[in-house]
Design a protein around this nucleic acid. Structure first.
Lengths: 218, 218
DNA sequence: TTTATATCGATAAAAATATATCGATAGGTG
DNA sequence: CACCTATCGATATATTTTTATCGATATAAA
């Protein structure tokens, strides 16, 4: 076995910043820049350069004194850390407006995700095709996930169906769920759930705005 | 002036958990339950009960020994903390698939957000109507935001237009931006930006899944 | 070739966040 | 009515995350 470079554990905070680094790095790369310092990245994102260096250290990529990090190597290193240099097959359940919007995204393949089929329980939507992805009846979910060894499930159904869909996914061997339904899914320990719920982010926004406006009226 | 109950500072972590509490509380309320303990909430969400109590303390709502928290009071208290008991007018820019999906959401009004108009630079989309919200030409954004005292802007345009849209919003007096474009927006200090970028959450998922599957093959 | 300097990366300190402990109290039980 | 117990909420401890310090080193300039 090839010895992997020793990589430090990644905190969730760090994981969430890594895609932001890619965003900046891609832009710099398009400007033909080859090396970038932690300071430059930090400035672009309003972060601390020490934090950037620590985050990057977690990917195993090293920089050079006086020069910084080689952009190509860094992009590849971050992608590897996120497993974005592989694509994992995924099923999406719930072809409503949000689900359809997600199906339309061409860029998930750059982010390690390959949605190969979608499912619905609403007959009028079944057998539609969005962005080359066929919409199948929900009954086939578990079997197909199992047969095709699909590991990721995306849930974009309404609240009241979400837990049931999660159960079916798990029955089909799905190991990671990207959950857009505003409900806490109960799953076994070996299943990873990542919530992508608008309300969480919206709450931060509305609270901060209220605080900010309140401060002004004093 | 009415003396507000002394409320502790809210960390961003706490803010993100508050909507999850509401989710659970609403369900319990629908089951006619009137009081809930921090332990019960913690169990439902897989959190620690001490943490739940601390988060709730930050809203100013108090519980009763042996009984717990009055659900109605707690829901109201959390909503008040998030400013979800008011609605703030908002503009959305970018009526692509994601933008349209957001325009279709009826529930934002429960979350303090009232999208009153949408904007687009693509002529074929302008003057369409989604969920009773009219799509207007982007040129009108700044003026209208200013005249109508709109404080929140939602950005769902492609990467290359996002900064420009943000600039127009700020020119129109918008004070808080909910940004769905995968780019770090540069804004003055007095403007609040909350990023809602799928890639951040997806990165956590793909990384954890890879770790989890790797562990198995040892 | 020597010196100066930007930058890394390791270790240390500080700050933020989460968890533990424990006395106080409302409400049920004998 | 007196006791027991679940639960709160304040304070204390532990852990995680961020920020600071500083020696090492690759490159550029003198």
């Amino acid at each position: 076995m090839v010895a992997e470079k020793q990589v430090k554990a990644l905190s969730e905070r760090t994981l969430r910043r890594l895609p932001r680094y890619i965003e900046i790095l891609k832009r710099l790369k398009s400007e033909k820049i080859e090396f970038v310092s932690s300071n430059m990245i930090a400035d672009e994102l309003g972060l601390d350069s020490i934090q950037v260096r620590k985050d990057l250290a977690a990917t195993g990529v090293t920089g050079k004194p006086k020069l910084g990090f080689a952009i190509d190597e860094l992009i590849n290193g971050i992608k590897h850390t996120l497993n974005w240099d592989n694509q994992t097959d995924a099923f999406l359940v719930g072809a409503g407006s949000l689900g359809s919007a997600l199906l339309g995204y061409k860029t998930f393949s750059d982010h390690g995700l390959n949605i190969i089929a979608a499912f619905e329980n609403e007959p009028s939507k079944v057998s539609g095709i969005i962005n080359n992805i066929t919409i199948l009846p929900i009954e086939k979910l578990s079997d197909m996930a199992f047969r095709m060894k699909v590991h990721i499930g995306v849930i974009t159904v309404p609240i009241d169906q979400a837990q049931h869909v999660a159960d079916m996914m798990i029955e089909g061997g799905i190991r990671a769920i990207w959950n857009f339904a505003p409900i806490h899914l109960k799953v076994p320990d070996f299943v990873i759930v990542e919530n992508a719920q608008l309300s969480h982010s919206l709450g931060v926004l509305t609270h901060k705005l209220a605080e900010s406006l309140k401060g002004e009226n004093k």
